[in-house]
Amino acid sequence: MAHSGIDVLTAGSNFSRLLGGLWVTIKIALIAIIIGLIIGVLLGILRTLPNRPLRFILRLYLEFFRIVPTVVLLFLFYYILPKEFNVNLPADAVATLVFALWVAAEMTDIVRGALESVPQHQKEAGQAIGLTYWQLQRYVLIPQAWPLCLPATVNLMTRVVKTTSLLMLISVMDVINIGQQIIEANNKTAPNGVFWIYGIIFIFYFMINYPLSRWAKHLNKRRLEANH
């Protein structure tokens, strides 16, 4: 067992470094999700307005973030922003920004779809008692759209967590990047370390995403039951 390479996990401060990387990963994902949710819900509501130019712009925004691969977006923001616009952000901030904008874009579509699936009659019943536009959203449409949004939103969260694995490409010290460093530093002495490092990273990601995935499933089931 001496050569299995499992020692790499515990040697020196390796494990606490991995945990530190995991924390960076979680922090970026969490902040991006919170900011993205807020912006996405607001823009999603705007996408249900009958204003054509506004809808077109928001649609363009969604399609841009949906079509362009996340890696390209990261590079774009990481290399082009400082060069062309003289905005120098640390890698963590760039990562958070890109992910927040991506989450917001995806959220607009989830929110729009959910709002539009609330029956037209509900909207008219709300109008008929004199509710203003925002009152209608707040008391009638959003509360009914919310349960429809939740499963898709939680699934989006798991995608965000998974996609943080790309952050090493713009030198964010996330859990993958730290793992890679440890693997390279120990390559000579423990060539099998790579198995253990990626094994533990697998477990980390699983520990975050599995509960989320279960939660999404549970929410979906509850929504279906509530309808019957």
């Binding site: 009659h121 509900q122 019943a125 709300g126 008929a128 008692i129 008391y139 009638v140 509360p143 009914q144």
Partner: peptide
């Protein structure tokens, strides 16, 4: 006031909340 064929009560609010929404908020 208008009443519809399909009732269109708000399913997320109970009877009292359905009725009070207009007088209180509007």
């Amino acid at each position: 006031g208008m009443v519809f064929q399909s009732y269109d009560l708000f399913p997320n609010r109970n009877v009292l909340e359905n009725i009070l929404l207009g007088p209180l908020k509007v």
